[in-house]
Amino acid sequence: MSQKNKNASAYWKENIKYLALLLVIWFAVSYGAGILFKDALNNFTLGGFKLGFWFAQQGSIYVFVVLIFVYVRIMNKLDKKYGYDEAD
C-alpha cells in the first residue's frame, strides 16, 4: 500500500470518527432533549416556552446548524493535516 493510500485511509477513518461523534451529539439533542427528557426539561422555560417543547421545535435545528459549522472547521483542519487543503 502506497503512502498516498495510507494517508487517504487515515483521513477517511478520522473523518468518519468526527462525523459519528457529531451525529451522536445531534441525536442526543434532538431525540434526547426533545423526546426522552422532555418532561424534565419542561420544568424550565426559554422565551416563554417550555424547554422540552423548545428543543423539539427549534433547539435541535439550531444545534444542527452549529454542528455544520463545527464540521466545516474540523474538516478544514483535517484537510490541512493530511495535505488535502486548497492551498496547493
Rank of each mutant, 00 (worst) to 15 (best):
A20S: 09
F64W: 09
Y31W: 15
F44D: 01
A56Q: 11
K13V: 11
L41H: 01
F55Q: 11
K50A: 12
E14W: 11
L36C: 05
N5D: 11
N5Q: 15
G83T: 09
Y31E: 00
V29G: 01
F37G: 03
F49W: 06
G59M: 08
F27I: 07
Q57A: 13
V65W: 12
K17S: 02
K81P: 13
K81D: 04
G34H: 10
K13P: 00
L46Q: 00
K80Q: 12
K38L: 08
M1A: 09
N76V: 05
K4Y: 00
V65A: 05
K4S: 14
G32P: 13
K6H: 06
A20H: 03
A28S: 12
V70Y: 03
G52A: 12
A56I: 00
K80C: 01
F49K: 13
N7C: 11
N5Y: 15
K4W: 00
Y84M: 00
I16Q: 11
F49R: 14
K50H: 08
E86T: 10
W54L: 02
I25L: 14
V24K: 00
L36P: 01
V66M: 07
D85H: 12
Q57M: 13
T45W: 01
V65K: 02
D79C: 03
N7P: 04
F37A: 12
G48E: 01
A8I: 15
A20F: 15
A87G: 01
A8G: 04
D39R: 15
V66R: 06
L19D: 09
S2C: 05
T45G: 08
F37N: 02
D39T: 03
A20Y: 03
F55L: 04
F69K: 00
F49A: 15
F55I: 00
D85F: 10
Y84H: 04
Y82P: 09
A28K: 09
Q3S: 11
G34P: 06
K50Q: 14
L22W: 14
T45M: 04
I68H: 03
S30M: 05
Q3H: 09
Y18V: 05
N5H: 08
G52D: 09
D79Y: 13
V29D: 02
F53Y: 14
L23S: 09
W54D: 03
G48F: 09
L23C: 11
T45F: 01
G83M: 12
V29Q: 08
Q57T: 13
F27L: 14
Y18N: 15
L41P: 06
M75V: 14
K4G: 01
Q58V: 04
Y62L: 02
A87I: 10
F55G: 03
A10E: 14
V66P: 06
L23R: 01
Q3C: 03
S60N: 12
E86A: 10
S2M: 06
N7V: 10
I25N: 05
N15F: 15
G52H: 05
L41R: 04
F37S: 02
Y31L: 03
V65N: 06
I68T: 02
F27C: 04
K80Y: 13
Y11R: 03
V24S: 03
I68N: 02
N15Y: 15
Q58D: 06
Y31G: 07
G83A: 10
S60L: 01
S30R: 12
V65I: 15
A40W: 14
F49I: 08
K38D: 05
N7L: 14
L21M: 13
L78F: 08
D85T: 05
G59P: 07
I61Q: 10
Y82W: 05
